[in-house]
C-alpha cells in the first residue's frame, strides 16, 4: 500500500481553478519529486494534502485512509508533516522553543525525533538554539522549519521548495539534510530546481498548469530533453 495516494484532485483558490485532476502515489521509503515551474500547482498540491486547501473533487488518502476534508491538525497528527515554502518560523520563539513545542504532537515511544537528535543532524541550530526565529537568516529559518516538522515524527514529509531563494552553499546543506532524513521518512518534495531534485528522487511527477504532464524515474525524466525544455527549461 502506498503512504499517500492522490486521485483526480481538483483544488481552487477562491474562484481560480488551480489543480485539474492531479493523481499521484508516494510509496513508503521513497523520495518522490513534484517538479514544475512557479505557479504550476506544486504548493497547492501539498496544501491539498495537509488540508490547508480543501479539494473540491477527488480523493486524498494516507495509508489507505481518506483524509480529504479533515482539519489539518488531525492530518498532521496522523503522520503527515508539512514544511511550508515561505518558511514561517514562529518568529517570537527561540529555535529551541520552536522545536520543543512540537514534541508532544505525535510522540513515538522509541526511535522518534528528539531535540538532541535534531541538533546532531543540524549542528548549526544547536549553536543558535537561544536565538529568536526572527533573528535568523533565510537558510537558518529553512532549517528550523524542516527540523520543527520532523519533531512531530511524520511518516511522510511534504517539503515545499526548500531551496527557494537560498544561496548555493545552503542549498547543498539542505540536500545533505534530505539525504539524512530519507533514511527514516518518506518524502514528497516539491521543487522547480530540476538538478537539485534529480539526485534525490526515486520517482518524479512533472506538473504544469495544474496537471501532471509527465512521470517517471529520475533517469527517465533526465533523459527526456524535450520535456525538460518544454516544462522546466528556458
Amino acid at each position: 500500500m502506498n503512504e499517500l495516494e492522490l486521485r483526480e484532485v481538483n483544488s481552487y483558490y477562491g474562484k481560480s481553478h488551480i489543480l485539474f485532476g492531479v493523481s499521484l502515489d508516494v510509496a513508503q521509503g521513497q523520495v518522490v519529486g513534484l517538479i514544475g515551474r512557479n505557479g504550476a500547482g506544486k504548493s497547492t498540491t501539498l496544501k491539498s494534502i495537509i488540508g490547508i486547501v480543501q479539494p473540491r473533487g477527488g480523493s486524498v488518502s494516507f495509508r489507505g485512509k481518506d483524509i480529504c476534508g479533515m482539519p489539518s491538525h488531525r492530518i498532521a497528527k496522523m503522520g503527515v508533516g508539512f514544511v511550508p515554502e515561505d518558511r514561517r518560523v514562529f518568529s517570537d520563539l527561540s529555535v529551541l522553543d520552536n522545536l520543543e513545542i512540537m514534541q508532544n504532537v505525535n510522540p513515538q515511544r522509541e526511535g522518534g525525533w528528539t531535540v538532541e537528535k535534531i541538533f546532531d543532524l543540524f549542528p548549526k541550530l544547536a549553536q543558535l538554539r537561544h536565538n529568536r526565529g526572527m533573528d535568523l537568516s533565510g537558510g537558518e529559518q529553512q532549517m528550523v522549519t524542516i527540523a520543527r516538522t520532523l519533531m512531530i515524527n511524520p511518516a511522510v514529509l511534504l517539503l515545499d521548495e526548500p531551496t527557494e531563494g537560498l544561496a548555493p552553499l545552503i542549498v547543498r546543506e539542505i540536500k545533505r539534510l534530505i539525504q539524512e532524513v530519507r533514511k527514516s521518512t518518506t518524502i514528497l518534495l516539491a521543487e522547480q530546481n530540476l538538478r537539485f531534485v534529480l539526485d534525490l528522487i526515486d520517482y518524479g511527477y512533472v506538473i504544469d498548469q495544474g496537471r501532471v504532464v509527465l512521470q517517471g524515474t529520475a533517469e527517465e525524466l533526465d533523459a527526456d530533453e524535450q520535456a525538460k525544455e518544454k516544462y522546466l527549461g528556458v
Binding site: 515551474r37 530546481n193 530540476l194 538538478r195 537539485f196 525538460k228
Partner: peptide, 8 residues
C-alpha cells in the same frame, strides 16, 4: 542554471 539548478 537558475531554473534547472546548479550542476552538482
Amino acid at each position: 542554471e537558475a531554473y534547472l539548478g546548479e550542476e552538482a
